[in-house]
Nucleic acid binder design. Structure first.
Lengths: 205, 205, 205, 205
DNA sequence: GATGAATGAGCCTTCATTCAT
DNA sequence: AATGAATGAAGGCTCATTCAT
């Protein structure tokens, strides 16, 4: 009857995240162990190698699974502006968490094995673009949006959001609050591409 | 009379860039030397430490000095669309070069000494935002653009461009060519905010 | 519960001493490790740098603490010759151990931090001179010794001893056994400076 | 007709001495070159290796050749005290120059090739001992000195002198001027071993 | 001959990983 | 299971030595 497990992975991952986001892949396992309050050896009981730990720490539990259904169900909804704002806020919130990790992962110099590479899916930002493209297309199809190339505009839209997260992470630079940022770009976007009168009138507010 | 100089810094920097952009700060000096076709010791004759080399390799010769004047002189120009496209292309071209380096530098885990931190200026992307904000403001002032918060829209505009460079660097993902990408977002932007008839008519083309 | 400690500093220091006394500061840590029968990394777990190890290996646990009291208590003792011989033997024994280390330390080229520099005391040979000076002075005071400048004669006396250790260490040169060497110089010294009849008569033996 | 030699060995050796006596064998050839005011390459034109330069710099042009004759000719001279003082001063003067070099050489960690090892002679201090032993023996033979073991007393005598040089070199410690130091030990020595009335009477002064 | 740029072998030191309890 | 002592491979950096002029 062996001693019961008293260390759980999440506390290691949490500590690893702290260290890796601060020092990059060069962060030391000793420090991770110290912050996690466990011994160095224990880390390697849970993660065979430092790379594994790094990947686990930088990976993000995918939370976009049901976004697709949710967004598509809002296609054609009464209030276009707020449904798109809602989407934008969701994405931005997520990007602010993910972007720093992606930056670290991409620059760690470790070769990311296939199984870790977003589990066969495209990486979150690309996934977001694809989801949004489908949403845009749907709105185009019902005649509420007029854009020739939904994918490009989705890319640009996500880009604005991603850049917010990026500048925040890298330069600690924020032009305004996340929410008002999202409102601005949604307003701008709809103003350019929405054929919906309601939106136009909303703009006057 | 002594053996003439046969190594110049740029060939070292070039090799360092190759290695660092591939492997991050973990890239080995031996490999840099091999790629540069020189001995390892020579690297350290030119750069006291690996960190110094890294910073030199990731630093970007600023090329934005005279953008300000150029852009401001185009304020109110006949063809709004193309002048903004021109600006967008300039920025994107630059970002595609800079973004990978910024990512590497920010995540290297080395403490960047003040003198290297963009020589007291804000980092390029932020600088771009500021320049563009002024351009937007000028166009607002002459009544060709109608936006409430130029800074936020500049951020979003640069964001779209930056994201293009970012996805290209990190995921090798491109929705289209850089030029047509710029055209799309400029068109979209003007369509939303330009009060200029000419632009509208151009859109029909 | 963790792997028990199996390396102790003294075995490292011993090995370091062997190597450093043979090769000076240039002695390699790899060799020290090999001789100590441990891994090179372990050395640096115990001594942050090679310099630290060197200083620890060349430093000598001071053993002169209570010499002062001991010697002073023998002032005026019945047998002057043997009490001075006793002192001489003690010093010589110690010098034979210390001199080689002092030589190495002084010529290592490393800057010896204050805390290592004999802990604020003068270095052993100087300390010996001072102790002996006081002893001589005391014997002068009770009228058994007639010397004008005790410090100079202490210096010369220690010098004879130190030279024995020095020639032994550097040239492997010994004129006789340490004990008979001490006897000779003590006899000579007393013969010159002792006003005690008993000593004179001892000389005839 | 090649360009005439414009660098002479002595300026290199002088610079090397400065550096080696300060930093030990670790002293850098670059610094020696700088101090000598020549290029690094030139050093190696004159001395095949650093070790060779070191040995040349630490070697001492032997100057004892004719000491033997000189001393022996003073055997039995009118003023024993001053003739021995003269000898002592000569030796001390020489030791003060030699001892630091011997220390450095012995601790450099380089294996000194036979040809450099004092050209087959014993090292200077030992040589001094031998010379002095013969002098003492001669004085014993003519009945002016009464010592049982001249070699041991020569050793002790040289030891006192050597220690003066040693403490000066290593600790910058001097009990008095070299001259008065010599006088003291000579006086002490003669007082112990001289059977010459004149000397005794000199003591009273 | 003199120069100093270029070299590269070698060493100290770090730190991920293993191991004995 | 958990610990942290021990390991050793690997890398940054130095500096004696060579080389092209």
């Amino acid at each position: 009857m062996p001693r019961p497990v008293s260390i759980d992975r999440s506390q290691i991952i949490e500590a690893a995240r702290t260290v890796f986001l601060r020092n990059g892949f060069r962060g030391k396992t000793t420090e991770i162990a110290r912050i996690a309050g466990i011994s160095e050896g224990s880390i390697f009981k849970h993660f065979k190698t430092k790379s594994n730990l790094f990947l686990a720490a930088m990976a993000s539990e995918t939370g976009e699974e049901n976004w697709s259904a949710e967004w598509m169900s809002s296609v054609g909804s009464h209030d276009f502006q707020s449904s798109l704002e809602n989407i934008g806020n969701k994405i931005l919130q997520r990007l602010r968490m993910i972007v720093p990790r992606l930056i670290m992962a991409s620059s760690s110099g470790i070769t990311i094995p296939k199984q870790y590479q977003f589990q066969g899916c495209p990486p979150p930002p690309i996934q977001h673009i694809e989801l949004l493209t489908r949403f845009f297309q749907a709105e185009v199809d019902i005649g509420r949006l007029s854009i020739s190339n939904p994918q490009v505009h989705a890319h640009a839209f996500i880009g604005s959001l991603s850049h917010f997260a990026w500048c925040e992470a890298m330069f600690d630079y924020k032009p305004c609050t996340p929410t008002s940022y999202v409102r601005s770009i949604v307003t701008s976007f709809l103003s350019a591409h929405s054929s919906c009168k309601i939106t136009k009138s909303q703009l006057r507010k």
